[in-house]
Design a protein around this nucleic acid. Sequence first.
DNA 1: TCCTTGTCTAGACGGTTATCAAAGTAACGG
DNA 2: CCGTTACTTTGATAACCGTCTAGACAAGGA
Lengths: 125, 125
Amino acid sequence: MSKQDEPLGWPDGCCPPLAVMAITAADAAELAPALKALGDPVRLQLLSMIASNPAGEICVCNLTPAFDLSGPTISHHLKVLREAGLVSSERRASWVYYRVIPEALAKLSVLLDVAGAGTPVAMTL
Amino acid sequence: MSKQDEPLGWPDGCCPPLAVMAITAADAAELAPALKALGDPVRLQLLSMIASNPAGEICVCNLTPAFDLSGPTISHHLKVLREAGLVSSERRASWVYYRVIPEALAKLSVLLDVAGAGTPVAMTL
DNA sequence: TCCTTGTCTAGACGGTTATCAAAGTAACGG
DNA sequence: CCGTTACTTTGATAACCGTCTAGACAAGGA
């Protein structure tokens, strides 16, 4: 269990759990957009479909039909997730595939991990 | 066999991690509002100040001066956090105290816990 | 080359949100 | 009672967001 530096460049001590120590305004401004992106039911479900796919990625053509929304609307939500740093996309042939950026999700999970504040629990990353 | 008529199918009362299996639209609709409430820098910082206070609670009079915002605006943000089920408030004498609802935060933390999902991304460092 | 399929972009429209000032409520102390 | 302090609610305004349609762009096949 070697915990190295976060690949996305978070300085040490930048994002401990919320309840351990009050975060700064700068940290809040940096973290809030990702949570905001997840604050929509469609995007939450989209991210879940991407994250839970055994292949580690999923084609937009498999996402769109799962919703009662137009293609452009799904594309818009995927763009929001992308710009929030939560997913990445890649075009192969005619199709575009999305995959999650696990480090981004892990950071948010640790941030909200209130158990880590009161109990000696190792933060498994 | 997938989750069908179970509104709350997991030990914590709602959902497994996002990456374990795709969440339903109903679960997404239930979880998204809390994330949406956290998707604002001011509210994220407010929640952090509440959660990290050693007393387990904090007076509004200690929150308001920490921001360059009017009292009503802070009150509004606290109301959003309250209606999202993330914090609770109690009036004692002249002052109102806020404290976090740890279960709500824990639920979100588990939801985003991609490490616990067993996804084969742990060695991407 | 043209057509088809998959995906994204642009623009518009209605609903929502963040913010403030002003007014309302609640509790304490003259 | 009355005034002060601590929030909260109300009302107004400007900005933002989710959704759509229409169109653009990319890739593959006839």
